[in-house]
């Protein structure tokens, strides 16, 4: 009787184990990527154009970024409305997300005549911030929504500075949202009022050497020095995931 019971238990165990193996074999171990996959992958450069001759206009800057990424990326230079729903249109499927505009500790902004000022905050811990309306917070985004992105660039003054709780735009992008690489700045940076923006042009093009994101950030800061006579804050770049490459284009993971 005991041996019969033992045999029955053994048979059941083997059956369960076999089923488990089959289930394991047919179940993907990585999360499914539900985003559409474009070929070439998309890159979005978010420009800003505040009014008046004293206003910051990063249209040229973002056009240079777009040109530098083409044709390996299907790049566009656009004005976003930065509520989460709007930004996800650009974020989920894309490989590059690059913003240039006024910024501060924990946030970056864009502006156009239609949407006015729109903000991407790292969280609602930014003083005076809101994640509602035209504004968005990175804390509202999930890993599943963002991890496909290869590089996020926050090109604005103090965009790389950390809040009192240690959070920062580019740090959260890499460490929480799973983008491959992120770049921001720990100082006031300047966009030239009269000539082409040196940093974005070179940063976008250095990837072709090939050079990593970290290498491109280092090289392009030196370019700013030699072309303009000053680092203009670009030496204070801050990079996470610096060993990532822009080129050849591929999808984030």
């Amino acid at each position: 009787m005991a041996s019969t019971m033992s045999a029955a238990v053994w048979s059941t165990t083997r059956l369960v184990a076999a089923v488990a193996v089959v289930v394991l074999l047919i179940t993907p171990t990585a999360p499914r990527v539900t985003a559409a996959q474009y070929s070439p992958p998309w890159a979005h450069a978010f420009r800003a154009h505040w009014p008046g001759t004293g206003g910051l206009d990063t249209t040229n800057t973002m056009n240079l970024a777009k040109q530098g990424l083409e044709p390996e990326y299907k790049a566009s230079s656009i004005n976003p409305a930065s509520a989460k729903a709007s930004m996800l249109t650009y974020a989920v499927h894309d490989a590059i997300w690059w913003m240039a505009g006024h910024a501060g500790t924990g946030f970056i902004t864009t502006y156009n005549a239609t949407n006015g000022t729109t903000v991407v905050n790292v969280s609602n811990q930014v003083p005076g911030s809101s994640c509602a309306g035209k504004n968005a917070c990175l804390t509202d985004y999930t890993f599943e929504e963002m991890h496909d992105i290869r590089v996020m660039v926050f090109q604005g003054c103090d965009s790389g500075k950390t809040l009192a709780n240690g959070d920062a735009l580019h740090k959260r992008a890499k460490q929480v949202l799973g983008v491959d690489a992120s770049v921001a700045f720990g100082a006031i940076i300047y966009f030239s009022a009269n000539t082409s923006d040196v940093w974005s042009f070179h940063f976008a093009n250095y990837g072709r050497l090939p050079t990593t994101v970290l290498g491109a950030a280092y090289y392009s800061a030196e370019d700013v020095l030699f072309y303009s006579g000053s680092y203009h804050g670009y030496k204070q770049y801050s990079v996470y995931g610096g060993s990532t490459y822009f080129f050849p284009a591929a999808y984030g993971s």
């Binding site: 505040w50 001759t53 004293g54 206003g55 910051l56 206009d57 006024h102 501060g104 946030f107 902004t109 000022t117 903000v119 930014v126 003083p127 005076g128 911030s129 809101s130 604005g156 003054c157 006031i188 940076i189 300047y190 966009f191 030239s192 009022a193 009269n194 203009h232 804050g233």
Partner: peptide, 26 residues
């Protein structure tokens, strides 16, 4: 909500003529 957006400018003033112009923005 009270969040402040701060602009930065680099202005060049010719120390001979006094002519001023904005050369960079941030």
């Amino acid at each position: 909500q009270g969040q402040e957006i701060v602009g930065h400018w680099l202005v060049e003033v010719d120390a001979r003529s006094g002519q001023a112009k904005i050369v960079a923005r941030g």
